[in-house]
Write a protein that binds this DNA or RNA. Sequence first.
DNA 1: ACATTAATGGACCGTGCGGTCCATTAGACG
DNA 2: CGTCTAATGGACCGCACGGTCCATTAATGT
Lengths: 204, 204
Amino acid sequence: MPSAQPVTVRGRATRERIVRAAAELVAERGVAGTSLDAVRARAHASKSQLYHYFADRDDLMRAVARAVTDEVLGGQAALFTQLDTVEGLRAWTDALVTLQQARGAKGGCPIGSLAGQLAEHDDGARLELADGLDRWESAIREGLERMAARGELRPDADPRALAHRTLTAVQGGLLLTQVRRDPHQLRTALDGALAGILGARTQP
Amino acid sequence: MPSAQPVTVRGRATRERIVRAAAELVAERGVAGTSLDAVRARAHASKSQLYHYFADRDDLMRAVARAVTDEVLGGQAALFTQLDTVEGLRAWTDALVTLQQARGAKGGCPIGSLAGQLAEHDDGARLELADGLDRWESAIREGLERMAARGELRPDADPRALAHRTLTAVQGGLLLTQVRRDPHQLRTALDGALAGILGARTQP
DNA sequence: ACATTAATGGACCGTGCGGTCCATTAGACG
DNA sequence: CGTCTAATGGACCGCACGGTCCATTAATGT
């Protein structure tokens, strides 16, 4: 019976502790650099607990992917509601850049980084991350659609395409930020996406 | 004496065979999924040959990073010379999208993918990949600068920023292509970057 | 030709790791 | 209170993997 869902409150707490420990280690050392024994130690759990709640290592990593996407998107939830104004869009991008500065431009996007490590190895994890990116893109698109509904975007503007390009700017900008250890890379990329949106407004 | 440069022609051939085998395996199974023994087998080499030409596993992976960037950029060299015309830019983006379709949208960008796997683990590899991205961005920028020199770009246009945004669109678009297994993701991202360049021309 | 160095083959080693197993304890529920 | 299941502890296993070592063969240079 693999990957049992916990029934007890204690069980839920243990499972959560394991996932959180694994997510932390993955963020610090990458997927390949994270051993089950290290997870076990940080989560103050035993080996049998790992295999009680997860079928195998891949199953745990899928849970990590889910947890990471939830956290990344959850952290932006408040900003997502304001993506229907120019000020809101700017505030959102500013927050992303500030976060990268705080991190020392290390690690890139947690979701994008996991994608590079898991997508080709485990299709389940890939789908989990794809879902996370979908939710992210939807949040942007819905903001732009609200702008369009208020008549603030030109009729020929395509919120879907604009949202898509904005997300690619986020991911591409974060990759360059990571490789070059320079948060300014993300700033420039986001400014380009923002310019595309500003140019689609009714009165420029 | 770690990481000896081969002196003999035979030595150079062996080293090259090893790097190529390693690069292939990394492309197929990722960095973590590539064992030295698998490299040894595919390269028809012995263990001592690996350690004759490379200090350790990380050293080999740095060589792989270098080889991969050289190949990616080399494959586009012909297209890079034409990046100073709208047709040339379009031909280049078309080639990138076609290549992804041929690959079944798997693997993403070889450079970007390696970045996610190596950047946080080995600083030397990170710098190698950063250098590759620099060369890539320079090729784009120089094309735009030639356009500017001919007066085809508005004076306030910034070739550096445009090139940077184009590269982030490539990387971000390839990441979404990989995660969603859909080459169209790259197409949309590149169209956005292209629109930014078209909008910076003298007569729209 | 001969000395010197490069290149090669492959056995060998330690261990870190994913995964299994079983015995024990805690808790839910009638 | 008694029973049944969930939850836990941790010893144990097999092996794949990175890395070492030494003996042997091929080139190179003078």
